[in-house]
Design a protein around this nucleic acid. Structure first.
Lengths: 116, 116
DNA sequence: GTTGGCGCTTTCGAAAAGTTAGTACAGTCT
DNA sequence: AGACTGTACTAACTTTTCGAAAGCGCCAAC
């Protein structure tokens, strides 16, 4: 927390106990950044998202989405059908964050393209 | 790799074996994002950076900086003095990436501030 | 003498990630 | 009929990584 005004604590990712640190860890985690970047293209069902993000296991994807939902970046819409139908999409906050992540991704891809 | 043109493979973070995936993992890792965001304010010596990023161990910081240097985001300047003097700073690529990360960080901090 | 600074590296146990199998239902194919 | 596919997870076990602490050598300050 950036403690400039003694009566109001501001979020500060550099402080280990700050809520924003936890959110940043989920967003900027190995699978979080890719899931959010994929969802930036539109809503996905679980297995479609898993196929999009090469290398992620069901376990890690489920865990990642759970955290992103808890932190308010992702919405999980469940339809009681057989087979199950669960759809993930970005919240307004998630959309803003994903926009930044996509810029970052494009920057890195660009750099790698230039090095080839 | 986004294989649009058969003769030229484009970087693709969604492909597990792509170089850009590895770089993204370092940049968007738990400690990578914070180290880069701190270095965006200017060069740091090792222990100064460690004090800036609350919660990181010497081990994890050293490991993180090593990876960022290998991927071309960070420069490590060593002066042969006693005590040792090692300074870390951003490369042009690192500066561009850190700029994006800082935007992301500010977005998240903003969101947390609004939720308080 | 002790303590502190510098920037790492090493060791070992704890925690997290990864791998694999499992769940129940319905549809398709042989 | 059985086998396989799809759905979206969870549980159990294994492997990898992280965190905590100690270590290194040199010099300066107390």
């Amino acid at each position: 927390m950036r403690d400039v005004n003694p009566e109001h604590l501001y979020a500060d990712v550099f402080a280990r106990n700050c809520t924003s640190r936890g959110i940043l860890e989920g967003v900027a985690g190995k699978w979080g950044v890719l899931a959010l970047a994929a969802l930036n293209d539109g809503a996905y069902r679980f297995n479609a998202l898993r196929r999009r993000v090469d290398g992620v296991s069901e376990k890690m994807l489920a865990q990642t989405l759970q955290g992103l939902e808890r932190d308010g970046l992702v919405r999980r819409d469940v339809q009681t059908t057989i087979p199950p139908h669960v759809e993930y999409s970005l919240t307004p906050f998630g959309t803003a964050v994903a926009g930044k992540l996509v810029e970052l991704v494009e920057l890195i891809q660009s750099e790698v393209d230039q090095r080839s």
